[in-house]
C-alpha cells in the first residue's frame, strides 16, 4: 500500500503520449455487427469485408487523443490498403459537417471509410468503454487485437502486427 502526498512536487510534462502497442483480444470473439453510412452516404457493412483485415476505430472530433491519432491511422491505411486490409473510423454522435470540417485539418487527410453512428449504438454492441478504442479484425472475422486509448498507428510495431494478420 502506498500513500502519496502531492504537496511538494514539481515537474512539468506535456500531453499524454500516444502509445504504440496492441493487446491481443481477450477471447477469440467474433466481431459484432457494424453497418453505417459513410461520408458519401453509402452503406458500409463489416460483413462484406470478411476475408480482409479490418481496423475499426471508434472516435469523435472533440476527443483529444482521437484527433491526435487520426493522421497516423491514415498512414497505417496507406501501408496496408494494398495488402487486403481496410480501415473504418466510426464517428460517435456527430454530424457530417462537423466531421468534414475536422478532417480538413488532419495531415495527412483521411481517405479511408468514415462512418456515422449518430445514436452511439455501436458502443454497447462492441463493448466500448471509452474513446478512442480500436479493434483489429482478422480475415476470419474475429477480433485479433484491441487498443484502448490513442495510438501511433504508423509505429512499426503496430504496422507489423497488422501486416502479419494479412499474411496469416
Amino acid at each position: 500500500m502506498l500513500f502519496m502526498l502531492f504537496s511538494n512536487l514539481s515537474q512539468a510534462v506535456g500531453l499524454p503520449p500516444l502509445t504504440h502497442s496492441l493487446t491481443p483480444g481477450e477471447t477469440v470473439r467474433e466481431a459484432p455487427a457494424l453497418r453505417f453510412r459513410n461520408l458519401d452516404d453509402e452503406t458500409v457493412d463489416l460483413r462484406d469485408l470478411r476475408g480482409k483485415v479490418v481496423v475499426v476505430n471508434f472516435w469523435a472530433t472533440w476527443c483529444p487523443p482521437c484527433r491526435r491519432e487520426m493522421g497516423s491511422l491514415e498512414k497505417l491505411y496507406w501501408a496496408v490498403k494494398d495488402k487486403n486490409a481496410e480501415v473504418l473510423a466510426v464517428n460517435i454522435g456527430e454530424d457530417i459537417d462537423t466531421v468534414f470540417s475536422f478532417l480538413g485539418t488532419v495531415e495527412p487527410s483521411p481517405s479511408f471509410h468514415m462512418l456515422f453512428d449518430y445514436d452511439a449504438v455501436s458502443m454497447d454492441t462492441w463493448g466500448v468503454k471509452g474513446l478512442p478504442t480500436t479493434y483489429i479484425i482478422g480475415p476470419d472475422g474475429r477480433i485479433a487485437y484491441k487498443a484502448v486509448g490513442g495510438r501511433e498507428f504508423d509505429h512499426p510495431e503496430i504496422l507489423r502486427k497488422v501486416i502479419d494478420l494479412t499474411i496469416d
Binding site: 502509445t19 502497442s21 493487446t23 468503454k129 487498443a147 484502448v148 486509448g149 490513442g150
Partner: peptide, 11 residues
C-alpha cells in the same frame, strides 16, 4: 475499464 499493459489508457 480494463487497461492492459503496454499502453492502454483513457483521458
Amino acid at each position: 475499464q480494463e487497461y492492459r499493459p503496454g499502453g492502454d489508457w483513457n483521458q
